[in-house]
Simulated scan of single mutants.
Amino acid sequence: MACNRADYLERTIESVLKYQSSVASKFPLFISQLQHLDFEEVHPERPGELIAYYKIARHYKWALDELFIKHNFSRVIILEDDMEIAPDFFEYFEAAANLLDNDKTILAVSSWNDNGQVQFVHDPRALYRSDFFPGLGWMLTKSVWEELSPKWPKAYWDDWMRLKEIHGDRQFIRPEVCRTYNFGEHGSSFGQFFNQYLKPIKMNDIDVDWNSMDLSYLKEDKFLKHFAKMVSDAKPVYGFDAVLKAYNIDGDVRIQYNDQADFERIARQFGIFEEWKDGIPRTAYKGVVVFRYQTPRRIFLVGPDSLMELGIER
């Protein structure tokens, strides 16, 4: 998906072609240029809104309609013109395609982790389910697009995807270590979050043999038990100074937060994303946000209802 950043697009295409040549028959490459479609006047719904977000949403709908309806693809991976991809990008999505096809509780598969900064990740093979749509390099199926296309929003399509009324009880697959790197400091969002959250992202740089890995643990019923055990096994830490206490504990740690303000306070101390959308923190599953801290141990920030949703006794 491209607009008016020729230098960015060139960098993205070079990155894709570097790893696409061996799988080109499976992964044909399409480039969609917004300017060529920009022929209708845009009318923002609220004063002062950026027209760019309306044009972007319109572009996404047009391009995905073309690929799914006109070209009849069963799945599409979406990149934007400010991304580089990891060496195992295509193998990762090929392995995840089987999950996406057979588990209807998965809405999409993403290559991105919002808390994927180098200090918060460790295992390039670890994957999670999330209630929060990550975007930034993601795959969806034709059947999902046929559901989304008729009600596609006029603007802010990514936040729209994060609404509970849109994703319902379905989740997204995301990696611990990102398979894309977003270098887009200059764009429609004016570099928001870039230096703090995007620039330090760790993109996977090793080959992972995804074909030999059993990803069945990511199916809804299995993952709930798998994730619940990790959370249950983590040592609970309490008190306003929980972050300081966690620093001095070996092994995985879980810290309870009481509400959004409490989560933001704890997240700020660790340096992870504080943002929520429609009641869900970025990367969260059942209200739990997990990241590495002084690797390889994990920190689980656990919501007020998370233990109950995971079936863990208090």
Rank of each mutant, 00 (worst) to 15 (best):
F193V: 11
R125H: 14
H122R: 02
N258T: 02
M203H: 09
L215C: 08
G311Y: 09
E45W: 01
P28Y: 11
E185P: 07
N204K: 11
F93N: 03
E264P: 14
R11V: 08
F223S: 01
Y285H: 15
I13Q: 08
D250R: 07
R11I: 05
I166Y: 07
E94W: 03
K219D: 12
E147V: 00
N4K: 00
N195P: 00
A261W: 14
F194V: 08
Y247T: 11
I77W: 12
L301R: 05
L301S: 07
I312N: 01
A63Q: 12
L148W: 08
R298G: 01
A86G: 03
F300N: 10
R125D: 04
F270K: 10
Y8D: 08
L29W: 03
V289W: 14
K164S: 09
D101S: 13
D158M: 10
I13G: 00
V121L: 07
N195A: 13
T105S: 13
L99M: 10
D123M: 10
P44N: 09
D305G: 10
R46P: 00
A97C: 02
E84G: 06
A242C: 14
V16P: 03
D209I: 05
P134S: 05
E147G: 01
L79A: 04
A24D: 10
D65G: 13
S306M: 02
